[in-house]
Simulated assay, not measured.
Amino acid sequence: MSAPERIPPRSVTTAELLTKGELKVRGRIREASNAVLYCSVTYEGREASCVYKPIAGERPLWDFPDGNLAQREVAAYEVSEATGWGLVPTTVLRDGPYGEGMCQLWIEAATDKDGSELLALVDAEEPEAGWKAIGFAEVGDGKTALLVHADDERLRRLAVLDAVINNADRKGGHLLPADEGRLYGIDHGVTFNAENKLRTLLWGWAGEPLTAEAVEALTELRAALDGALGTRLAELITAAEVDATRARVDALLTTGKHPEPSGEWPAIPWPPV
């Protein structure tokens, strides 16, 4: 008589863990303008650290009156996943100790990275090879320095994502280098506005042709916006904002170029880092 077949234990996905797991608050990240709680989450034997941002802890913003910031963070994750680039940590909407909010997987920063390989201030008029100019910044005593970012394919993908989601606040502190060469973008609450509000440090490719990889990702993203992704976004942001997202993707594919500052809105967030 043969032994019964052993069924291996089911693997819990990160999304399941964040959505269904028991959430325990371990501390608060006080540098943030809204309530940001550092938590642990456990489910079916798996445990992880995460960030929980309850909607109740959000400060109202006059230029983002439709819906809440937590749902925009989830929408940014959904769009990131649709590009296939995985630029945003797994993010879900769930109930928690302080009500409904955004829950995002905590990413440990790479121990050998301090961000200097991504952004720098240089005493020069033009960037060196491997760097892209952002603009001049005051550094005190009436002096200025050139702010530059790396000519890095990971940053370039993030610049495309920001153009799609209309990110109004891409600061240096929102860039998270992780192990194995990964780079994540975090803090996507002020995104998806129907009006053009793109503010970012990643202007180095402005007006340049999109890469073939970006065109392919945007083409697939546009199809997804007319399918399951569009349906999902409609649960998170307004119909006008979903339409505006489609229009931004259409514009990128039509021009075939990275967008340039409009001049109607401050192009760089403050403070930039």
Rank of each mutant, 00 (worst) to 15 (best):
M1E: 10
S2I: 08
R6W: 10
P8Q: 09
R10N: 08
V12F: 09
T14K: 00
E16H: 01
E16S: 09
E16I: 02
K20G: 13
V25S: 03
G27V: 04
R28K: 14
N34R: 06
Y38K: 08
G45N: 01
G45I: 00
E47V: 01
E47I: 02
C50W: 00
G57T: 03
W62L: 14
D66H: 12
G67E: 13
N68C: 15
N68I: 10
Q71M: 13
R72T: 09
E73C: 07
E73I: 07
A75I: 01
V88H: 03
T90D: 13
V92T: 00
L93Q: 07
Y98V: 06
Q104V: 06
I107P: 05
A110M: 06
T111W: 08
A120I: 00
L121Y: 00
L121N: 08
E125S: 08
E125T: 02
P127A: 08
G130H: 13
K132H: 13
A133R: 06
F136C: 12
V139F: 00
V139I: 15
G140N: 13
L147P: 11
H149I: 07
D151H: 15
E153F: 11
E153D: 10
L155Y: 12
R157G: 14
A163R: 13
A163I: 02
N166F: 04
N167I: 03
N167D: 12
A168Q: 03
A168W: 02
D169W: 02
R170N: 03
G172C: 03
G181R: 02
L183I: 13
G185R: 04
D187H: 02
G189T: 06
T191V: 11
N193A: 14
N196L: 08
K197Q: 11
T200C: 00
T200G: 02
L202G: 06
G207L: 07
G207Y: 03
E208A: 12
V215C: 12
A217M: 05
L218H: 01
E220T: 12
E220A: 13
R222V: 02
R232K: 15
T238Q: 10
E241V: 06
E241R: 10
T245C: 09
D250M: 01
D250F: 03
E260K: 15
W265D: 15
P266K: 07
I268H: 02
P269V: 05
W270C: 02
P271K: 06
V273Y: 13
